[in-house]
């Protein structure tokens, strides 16, 4: 079983997001890049499957600041091969361009399964998994929260709203967009990642010329203007608690 896991880095939303001078994009100097959360679940799912039935897990990630940390963390969890995709991404990368760049690389790896995060929070042109699947001529299922492989087919658990799931059977190879792994992504201590850094190697593959077509052009980016923002309750914790109680009482709920 060979599982290829393309992942992406996205801006950490805990940091303040600043729009750059062009007014069309985030100021990259202020962005802290972290692994996209569903991608972290895709890695976990791949590792869980490897632990259960053996095989090889290959992680691919475009070269953003912090990508080595993401790759080595995956190796510390059990990934076998780490591939950094290099290219000029500063001027913009979108899902279509990345999927096109991934297509020949993934095809050459001849995977049984491609697992990737079902979405990224900063994507504007669709999920990479669906695009990549089509470029690879493979079937796609997204919002996946469970996978079990039986021969050349896999039984997939797909999430619907309200906790409802659908079981679907897909012929392999296939691309799956993972929304949550069968168990929460494991934590790896920094010490283990440091050890892995000494022994693991990061391969590099060039993305070539990016073809950005397929996405709409952004002419303006700005924080949302909300019609009404919350009235802020200020003071020490006990004051805040007292004021909240007063509001709840006013509503006739206490």
């Amino acid at each position: 079983m060979k599982i290829v896991v393309p992942v992406q880095l996205v801006p950490d939303l805990v940091e303040e997001l600043v729009v750059d001078k062009s007014g069309k994009a985030l100021d990259l100097d202020t962005v802290r890049w972290i692994i996209s959360e569903p991608d972290d679940h895709a890695i976990e799912q791949a590792i869980l499957m490897k632990e259960k039935s053996g095989g090889e897990v290959i992680i691919l990630a475009p070269d953003f600041e912090g990508v080595d940390d993401v790759l080595f963390a995956a190796a510390a969890k059990g990934a076998d091969r780490l591939v950094k995709i290099t290219g000029d991404f500063e001027s913009g990368l979108n899902a279509h361009a990345l999927a096109r760049a991934l297509q020949p690389l993934v095809k050459d790896m001849n995977p049984d399964l491609v697992l990737t995060g079902v979405q990224t929070h900063n994507g504007l042109d669709g999920p990479i998994g669906a695009l990549l699947a089509e470029y690879l001529q493979m079937p796609y299922i997204g919002y996946v929260s469970g996978v079990s492989v039986q021969g050349n087919k896999a039984l997939i658990s797909k999430d619907y709203p309200g906790g409802l799931k659908a079981e679907m059977e897909v012929s392999l190879p296939a691309v799956l967009g993972v929304s949550s792994a069968e168990s929460a992504p494991r934590y790896v201590p920094i010490s283990k990642i440091r050890m892995v850094m000494k022994t693991s190697k990061v391969e590099e593959q060039d993305a070539g010329d990016l073809d950005l077509s397929g996405a709409a052009v952004v002419t303006r980016m700005s924080p949302p203007e909300s019609a009404e923002r919350a009235t802020m309750i200020t003071g020490k914790v006990d004051d805040v608690a007292a004021k909240i109680v007063a509001i709840i009482q006013e509503q006739g709920l206490l």
Binding site: L17, L26, V218, R220, M221, P224
Partner: peptide
């Protein structure tokens, strides 16, 4: 971005 940014085009 989790509702933190709006884009137009």
């Amino acid at each position: 971005c989790g509702g933190k940014m709006m884009v137009e085009g």
